[in-house]
Design a protein around this nucleic acid. Sequence first.
DNA 1: AATGAATGAGCCTTCATTCAT
DNA 2: AATGAATGAAGGCTCATTCAT
Lengths: 207, 207, 207, 207
Amino acid sequence: MTPPVSPLRPRKRPLQPRSLETVSCILEAAAQILEAQGFDAFNTNAVAERAGVSIGSLYQYFPGKDALVIALMRREKERFREDACAALQAPTGREAMLHLIRSAVRQQLDRPELARLLDIEELRPEAQAETQGVTGFRALMRAALDHADLPQQPDKEIATDDLCALVRTLVDAAGYRLESDRMGVESRLSGAIFGYLEGASAKHQQR
Amino acid sequence: MTPPVSPLRPRKRPLQPRSLETVSCILEAAAQILEAQGFDAFNTNAVAERAGVSIGSLYQYFPGKDALVIALMRREKERFREDACAALQAPTGREAMLHLIRSAVRQQLDRPELARLLDIEELRPEAQAETQGVTGFRALMRAALDHADLPQQPDKEIATDDLCALVRTLVDAAGYRLESDRMGVESRLSGAIFGYLEGASAKHQQR
Amino acid sequence: MTPPVSPLRPRKRPLQPRSLETVSCILEAAAQILEAQGFDAFNTNAVAERAGVSIGSLYQYFPGKDALVIALMRREKERFREDACAALQAPTGREAMLHLIRSAVRQQLDRPELARLLDIEELRPEAQAETQGVTGFRALMRAALDHADLPQQPDKEIATDDLCALVRTLVDAAGYRLESDRMGVESRLSGAIFGYLEGASAKHQQR
Amino acid sequence: MTPPVSPLRPRKRPLQPRSLETVSCILEAAAQILEAQGFDAFNTNAVAERAGVSIGSLYQYFPGKDALVIALMRREKERFREDACAALQAPTGREAMLHLIRSAVRQQLDRPELARLLDIEELRPEAQAETQGVTGFRALMRAALDHADLPQQPDKEIATDDLCALVRTLVDAAGYRLESDRMGVESRLSGAIFGYLEGASAKHQQR
DNA sequence: AATGAATGAGCCTTCATTCAT
DNA sequence: AATGAATGAAGGCTCATTCAT
C-alpha cells in the first residue's frame, strides 16, 4: 500500500525553485567538506551548517547521511555523463576510447580529491546497489569495447571493469601528485589502456 | 629524555611469550573484522572482543585505533616483502616485473578485501608518514624500472607511482569479482604494465 | 575566519528561552553534584543526569568538562560581584574592606562546600587564564588597598594576594565547621586582615 | 576473628631494609609526580614506573591509591613534626608561635607545590579520618594557644583551626608566587597571626 | 617477593536522527 | 517549510586493581 520507501532516495522531490536551490546548496556543501576535510569531518551537522541550512531542512531533502553521499555521487556522474556521452557517437573504438579518457581526466583533475573520495565510497556495497542504474563511466566503456577496431577481449565484462579501475586509479594518482598536465596524464593513460587491450592478445604471458 | 611517544606505534614491546601471542591475536582480529565487516564496524571494542582480549590489553600494545591499522599495514607489507624481495635478484627488468606481479597477485588474492581496504587506508596522510620507511612494493617497483631492458620512462617516479596504482587496482578489481584465476589476472596485468611502459615511447598519443 | 574555538567557552549561545533554561539547569546540577559529592563524582554524565538532560544537550552548551567548571566559576563570581561591587563606592579603605568581608562571608557561607571546591579549582592554571578577565574578588581587594587610610604595604600585589587567600581560607574553615554565625566569622576575619595590614608596619618581626 | 583490615594502611609493615627502601622509593616517586605534574597525572601505574618498581610491588606495600596519598601525608607531617616539636619547649606563647611559623614556612617553601596539593587533599573526608591521629601542626598550634601571654580567645578550637588555615594559605600563596624570601613571608604571617589573636579582643568589630 | 600482563568499569565525547515549536 | 534543541547509542580511552607466573 505504502509507496516503496528507500532510505537512500530523497524524501520529497524538490519541485519548487527555492527547494531546488537548497538541495544544490547542500550538495555543494557536502562536496566541499568532503574534499577539504575528508571523511572524518564529513557529518550531517557540518554539512548543514556549511550549507547555511538547518539540520532539519537537510533531513527534509535527504533521509540520511548515506543518501547525501549517494546524491553527491549521482551529481558527479551526471556531470561526467554530459561530457562523455558524445563518445557513443564516435565512429571507431579508438576514438571513443580517447574521448572517454579525455572526459575522465577532465572530471577527475577538476576536483581531484572529491573524485577520489567518491571513487572509494562507490565501492561500498550500499552505494553500488544505488548507483549502478545510472549510465556512468562503466556503461560507456562497455559500449566502446564493442567496436570492431579494438583488439577483442576474452571476457568483455572483466575488461570493462579493469579498464574502468585503471582509468580511475591512474587519474587519482595524478591528482594525488597535484599534477595538472592533462596531456601527460592522458598520454600515459592511453599507453596503459591500449597496452592492456593488446596484451590480452597474448605475447606478454610467458613465465 | 623521555622516549619519543607516538600515538601510532606500540606502547610496549611485548616481551613475554604470552603477550606476544596477545599482540598477534589482536592483529588477526583486526584483520578479520576489517575484511568481513569493513571500516564502519572496525572499532577498538569490537577488535578486542573478537580477539578474546580485554579492551585494556589492546591499549597496552596499541595506543589507539590508528596504531592498530598501521600495525596491520606493516604486518601485511612485511608478509609481502618476504615474498617479493627476490625480485631484486632478477637479471632483467622484465623478469623482475613478472616476479613482482606474481607476488602482488598472490598477496592480494590471498585476502582480497583486507588488501583492498588497507590500500585505501594507505593513502591517508598519517598512514603515509608512518609506512614509508618500510621497504614496500613501491621501492621494489622503482628498482625494477632501472633495468636497461625496459623502455625508458620520461619520469621514473611518476611511472613508479602509476605502475603501483595500476597493479593495485587491477588486482583489487579481480579480488572484488572473487576471481581466483591467478594466471588470468597476471596475464591481464602484464598486458597493462608493459603496455604502459611502451606506450610512453609514443605511438598512442595522437589526439 | 572561523570564530575562535576554545574548549573552555560555550559552543552555542542559548538563544531560545528553552535552551536558556537548559543551560541554567545544567549549571545548577553541576553545582549540586560538586558540593554534595565532590570532585570525584563530578563527571559529565552525572551532571547531565542530575540536570534531567541528555548528555548530548550538555555538550551543546559546554564543550567539555572543564568548560562546565569554568562556567560555574563565572556564575559564582558574577553573583559575588553584584553584591560586592558597591565596595568600590565606599569612602574609606576600612569601610571598603568591611564591605568586602561581609560580601565574601555571605557568599562563602551560602554554599560553603561549593565555594571551597571552586576556590581550589581556581588555582589550576587553565582556570586562571580563563577567569582572570572577570572582575572578581581580587580586583576589588586591590582597589580597596589603595585607600589612604589603610596602612601602606611594601608590595601591594603581594598584600592583595595574601588578603584574598586569607579571606578565602578563614571563611572556608568556618564553612567547614558548618559555622553559620556570620558576625563571628566576620569579626575574626577583620582581626586577621587589619592585623596583617598593620603587622606589615613592623613590630612583630623580631626573630 | 580476622585482624582489623583497613584499606588505608599498609598491608605489611616493611621490616627488612630492602623493603624499607622500596617503600620510600615509592613515596618519593609519588611526591615527585604530584608536584611536577599534578593530580591528573598521579596514578598508581605512573608512580610505580617512576619508582622503578612493578605495579604489583606497589600494591604489596600500599593497598590502594588512597593509601599512597595518606602515607605521603604522614611522611610530610612527620618531617614537619621533627622540626616543629621544639615549639613545645618554648617558654612563651609568642616564642612558640614564632617557632611554629618558622617551621611551617621552611616546610612549605621547601617543596611548595607538593605541600599545597597535600593541603588540599587533607581536606577530603577519607584523609581526615586517617590523619588526625598524627600529632601535626594543629596539635602544636593548639598547645601554643594555651600559653598565658597570648590574647585569650573566645573559642580556642576555632582559633586553632583558623590559625592553621591562615598559616597554610599564606605560605601556599607565597609558594605559588615562587617567592623564596622566607623572612618576608614569616614577617607577613606574624602580622596576620598576632593581628588575628588581638583582633578577637574586640576593637575591629564595628559595623 | 616480585613481576607485569590482563581486566573491565566507567568516563569523555561525537554525531545521526527526531520532533516540538 | 524551516528551525534548532534535544536525544542517546556508540565508540575511544584510562587507570585502579588482580592474579598467574
